[in-house]
Design a protein around this nucleic acid. Structure first.
Lengths: 340, 340
DNA sequence: CTGAAAGCGCTAACAA
DNA sequence: TTGTTAGCGCTTTCAG
C-alpha cells in the first residue's frame, strides 16, 4: 500500500490533450495568444488526468516561491495566534502559504531558522511578538527579501511596522466612560517601561482633557496580572476619599483583578463604578460577571495588514515606518450610564 | 535600493573553488568518496561567496520538500498553538519547516488549502483541533502523503492519531486527592457528548474505586464555562448535606467558576475543600487565588510526538491507530492534605 | 497559433 | 577522486 502515488506532470497532460508541453503551460497560466478551443481541451485533459502543478518547479523557474515566514519569539502565545491567523487569511487567497517559525528567545536558534526559511526561498518575512529588548533583526537588505514587523518593533525605524493604536484605543475607552457620564476616571495599568503603557496612558490623559472632565486623574502602574489589578484597586479605594467612579484598566486581566477587589468590598459594577478593560481577551472578558466592556486591538486585522504590506513590498512597491491600526470598543456589561 | 540581491548558485562556488559543479554538490551533501582536502576547499569557498543551497531545486530533484503542513479548523485557538509549537520544535532540527493552514470550519476552503499545500509538495500533513463532527478527512492514500491527527480524530481509525490520555489524567487528579486524604470527591465537567468528558469521567470512577474511597461519587455535567462551574458547585453544595470534601473539575475554567461559588459562600480552599482543574491553562490557573492545582495535557509534547510520527511515516515506516500520551499533575495551592 | 529547445539550481549516474 | 551529462517539472523565448 505504500506505493508512492504516481506523480502527474505536465507531460501527461500534453500527451492526453495531444499537444506540446509548452502549449499546456500556456494554457495553465492563462497566457494569451492561443486558440480558445485548444485551451479548453488542455484544461479538460488536465482535470481528467488529475494534474496539479508542482509549485516547486514553478518557483524554481520564476524565482518566487509564494511562501512567507512568520517568526515569533514567544512560543506563539496569546497575541501571536490571531496575528498568524490573520496573516494566513490574507495571503492564502493569493496562493501564498505561511511558514511557522518559533525562536524562543534564542538568538542563535532564530538565525538558524531564518537561514532555513531563506533556503526555502520565502518571498518575505514577518516578525511578530518579539521582546522589546531591541535585539538586532536582520534588515531586508541583508536578507534580500522584504520584511515587516507586526505587533513588535525592530531596531530599524525604516522597516514597515504594524502596531495597534494604543493611544486611540485608550481614548476610545475613556470617551466611552465620559459619554456615560463618569467624571472621576482612574487608570490602572502595567509596568511603565512598556511603550503600550505609556501610549495608553497618554491617550487616557488626552481624553480626560478633551472630555472636560475636570482635573481628576490618576494613573497607577503595576504589573500585567490580576493580582496587580487587585492591589491597584485597593490603592484606589482604600483611601476612602477621592474615589473614582470609573476605572480604565490597561488589560483585561488587570480589570479582572480590580473587579475582584470591588466585589469583595461591596462595590458593585456597573452600578457604583464602571470598569473597562483592554485586549478583548474573550475567554477572560466573557467569563467575568458582569461581562467586561473592553478594547479590542483587532489583531486579526493587524495580521492581515501585515500580509497586505508584505505583498505590496514583494511587488516592488515601497513602504516604511510605523503604521498604527485602530482599536475598537466592545461594549458588554461592566460599564453603564451613571445614574443620578 | 530595491535591487534584487544577486542569488548565489552552486556554480559560483564551483568557480571560486576551482572544481566542477558536481564536486561542490558532493561536498555540500557530505557525500563520501572524495578528497578531504577538496571538500575543505569547497566548503570554504562556499562560505566565502555566501552560498546557500536553494531548497526548491533540491526538493525538485529529490522529490521531497522537507516541509509539512498543519491544518487546524479552530482559527488557531488555545489548544492548537502549543501543538503547532511542539511540532515545529520537533521538526525544525531536521530542517523541515511547517506550513500554517487554517480552515475555519469551511470544508471547501479546507479543500483548497490542502490542494495548495499539495501543490507545494509538502511531505506530510497533520490535522489538529478539528471539530469532532467527523467530517470527512482525505486519507493518506488519496493525498499521496502521510498524515497524522493530533488532538482530534478523523473518521478513519487507521490513521495515526495522537491524543492526550484523558482517563489517565483524570486518575492522576483523583489519586492526588485521595492521597491527600479526601474521601468525598465530586466531579464537575463539560457536556456529555465530548469524548474527553466521558473518558475523564471514567478515569474518575476508576480511581475512586481503586482508592477504596467508599461509594461517594457524583459526576455533574454542564458546559465548558466558568458560569457552568459556578452552577455545578451550587448544585453540589446547596443541598446542605452529602457535600463533597474535594472537587475534580473537567477544565480550569469550570474549576474557576466553582471556586467563585465556594468563596462567595464562605467555603475556603483548600482548608474546607480541595479543588483540582484540568488543562493547566497557565494564565488561568496562576491567576486565581489560591493558585489552581491542575492536570497538564502536555500539548507541546503531543505536537512533538505528532512530528515524530510523521517523520517515521515519511521514512516509510508504518504506524497507525490511536496513541494516548500521558498527562501530568501540576500541584499548586488549591489542594491540601485533609486536616483532621 | 503551436512546438522545439534552452534553461531555473541542483543531484546522481556514469565516465574519465 | 573528479568531471561530464542527463535530467527533476516547469516556463519562456524563438522559430515554424
Amino acid at each position: 500500500m505504500k506505493l508512492p502515488k504516481k506523480i502527474i506532470t505536465i507531460r501527461d497532460v500534453a500527451k492526453a490533450a495531444g499537444v506540446s508541453i509548452s502549449t499546456v503551460s500556456k494554457a495553465m497560466n492563462g497566457n494569451p495568444g492561443m486558440g480558445e478551443e485548444t485551451r479548453k481541451r488542455v484544461l479538460k485533459a488536465a482535470k481528467a488526468v488529475g494534474f496539479r502543478r508542482n509549485d516547486l518547479a514553478h518557483a524554481l523557474h520564476r524565482g518566487t516561491s509564494k511562501t512567507v515566514g512568520i517568526v515569533s519569539s514567544d512560543n506563539f502565545g496569546r497575541f501571536t495566534m490571531p496575528i498568524a491567523a490573520g496573516l494566513e487569511m490574507e495571503l492564502s487567497p493569493h496562493q501564498i502559504s505561511v511558514f511557522l517559525c518559533n525562536a524562543t528567545d534564542d538568538v542563535e536558534l532564530e538565525k538558524r531558522h531564518i537561514a532555513q526559511l531563506l533556503a526555502k526561498r520565502v518571498d518575505g518575512l514577518v516578525f511578530t511578538a518579539r521582546r522589546l529588548d531591541k535585539r538586532h533583526t536582520p534588515s531586508a537588505d541583508e536578507l534580500g527579501i522584504p520584511i515587516v514587523f507586526a505587533f513588535s518593533q525592530g531596531d530599524n525605524a525604516e522597516v514597515p511596522t504594524l502596531l495597534p493604536d494604543d493611544e486611540q484605543g485608550a481614548r476610545l475607552a475613556v470617551e466611552h466612560l465620559v459619554s456615560l457620564g463618569h467624571r472621576r476616571i482612574a487608570h490602572i495599568t502595567g509596568p511603565q517601561h512598556f511603550e503600550a503603557v505609556q501610549r495608553r496612558s497618554a491617550g487616557y490623559r488626552t481624553a480626560i482633557t478633551k472630555g472636560r472632565v475636570g482635573d481628576y486623574g490618576q494613573t497607577l502602574m503595576g504589573r500585567w496580572s490580576e493580582a496587580s489589578g487587585y492591589d491597584m484597586a485597593r490603592d484606589l479605594f482604600a483611601a476612602g476619599r477621592d474615589r473614582p467612579d470609573a476605572i480604565f484598566a490597561g488589560s483585561d486581566q488587570i480589570a479582572r483583578g480590580a473587579m475582584e477587589y470591588l466585589r469583595e468590598h461591596g462595590i458593585s459594577i456597573p452600578q457604583d463604578v464602571s470598569i473597562i478593560g483592554f485586549d478583548n481577551w474573550e475567554v477572560m472578558a466573557e467569563a467575568v460577571r458582569p461581562k467586561l466592556t473592553t478594547i479590542d486591538m483587532n489583531l486579526n486585522a493587524l495580521g492581515a495588514a501585515a500580509g497586505n504590506t508584505l505583498m505590496r513590498l514583494m511587488k516592488g512597491e515601497i513602504a516604511k515606518g510605523i503604521e498604527r491600526l485602530p482599536c475598537s470598543l466592545i461594549v458588554r456589561e461592566s460599564t453603564r450610564s451613571r445614574t443620578q
